[in-house]
Design a binder for these strands. Structure first.
Lengths: 219, 219
DNA sequence: TACTGATTCGAACGAACGTTCGAATTATTA
DNA sequence: TAATAATTCGAACGTTCGTTCGAATCAGTA
């Protein structure tokens, strides 16, 4: 009778240990999330119907509801997984790196590498911001705030160390803009790979932030 | 009997001259577009229903169809008007300015001033990119391409004059990212006005693009 | 092989969607 | 004021939406 009705229930099923205990349920849910991500990416959250998701994932319309209780929760699961993964990887890569400029370069590289390797998911995360209501929305917003704060911290470190002067808020948000906008233009057949783009963006951004004094030529 | 069914029909009605001949029809259509812009901004194009637009504009559901023939064409009218206005203003402001750095600063200022003065419309333009199909989509895309090309031209001028080396494509798209992302974070109660933000972003961007050599500190 | 719980599905629900139509109303001209 | 054109509307159209339910099917164990 009763369906698990949500992914959280599954964690309770596996007894702590075991590195990848992945039940059948977990695997199937992950497949559905992957297909749904593609559809949301292509048609947008509102524009994608449950029937679209059903067709894409090869599972019946009703069958989908065995894995999540609503379309909104499905989007939530996608966004939470994507965002917490990128934060997790960032933290791992920052471990043991002390130089504040290097840390910022790692931040940019991590963001763009993950972005380009998971373009659909990241587009869904960027583009379908704001659509999750109350409960769902605030939980994703909390991860976003943590990610933002990490970046603010990295820049403040750089500022302090080198006695720079600029608005951290504006710098961070400009950087996010540069990076996130990539989903609107990146073409793997034309553009360089993530590492190269990350390097160029980091140069652009760090020079802009570090170079002191006015840039305008004397007249 | 027959309804005009589209805004283009109206232009034919007014005989060339007259600076602001604005018919009643024109005015009413503009009002509807303004209300629709707010609704699209708040709920997204797919998420906003014709009934939402009807409620917001105070006109009956059926009445709306006297002014445009479909929801898609309504979005098209909003996007075309917004985009062609920003291009038009840019061209006017670039007139007579020769210094290539100044011209880039003007580009950024024009973009951000218009963006913040017409936040809803610009969000609809940025966020609902891609939703217009074939005919409608390609016409807006053409304006976008022109706008992009202007920016490429400005940067190439700077590059040539100063013998700089960077990817114009990446620089332009990074700049658009910085600027367009503003719709996700700008808060008039916290953030500075357009001119100030434009100045800071221009400094960041131009320093990044102009500053030669490596930025990394020696070790 | 029989049993039990986990998984999948066809069919249907009421609500909301974009759009249409003919009649009613308002503005304009003669 | 009468006649004509421009504008607005209530009511309905057929379609698609997200979701539900009970029955059918499957996998794993005894």
């Amino acid at each position: 009778m009763g369906s698990p009705s949500t992914a959280t229930r599954v964690s309770a099923r596996r007894h702590r240990a075991a590195p990848v205990p992945e039940t059948r349920y977990d695997r199937r849910l992950a497949e559905i999330l992957a297909h749904a991500t593609e559809v949301f990416c292509k048609k947008g959250y509102e524009g994608a119907s449950m029937r679209d998701l059903s067709r894409e994932s090869g599972m019946s319309l009703a069958g989908l509801y065995y894995y999540f209780e609503s379309k909104e929760r499905l989007l939530y699961l996608i966004q939470r997984h994507t965002f917490s993964t990128i934060v997790e990887r960032l933290k791992a890569r920052l471990q043991g790196v002390d130089d504040s400029e290097d840390r910022i370069r790692i931040f940019i590289l991590n963001h763009l590498e993950y972005f380009l390797a998971n373009q659909s998911a990241m587009k869904v995360l960027s583009h379908e911001d704001e659509v999750l209501k109350n409960g769902f929305g605030s939980e994703v917003a909390a991860i976003k705030r943590e990610y933002y704060r990490i970046c603010v911290g990295l820049l403040d470190d750089l500022k302090r160390e080198r006695g720079l002067q600029f608005s951290t808020r504006l710098a961070v948000l400009s950087l996010f803009g540069m990076m996130n906008w990539i989903y609107t233009w990146h073409n793997p057949r034309v553009d360089a790979d993530a590492a190269s783009i990350a390097g160029q963006m980091a140069d652009l951004f760090l020079r802009g932030v570090i170079a002191g004094g006015k840039v305008r030529k004397e007249r």
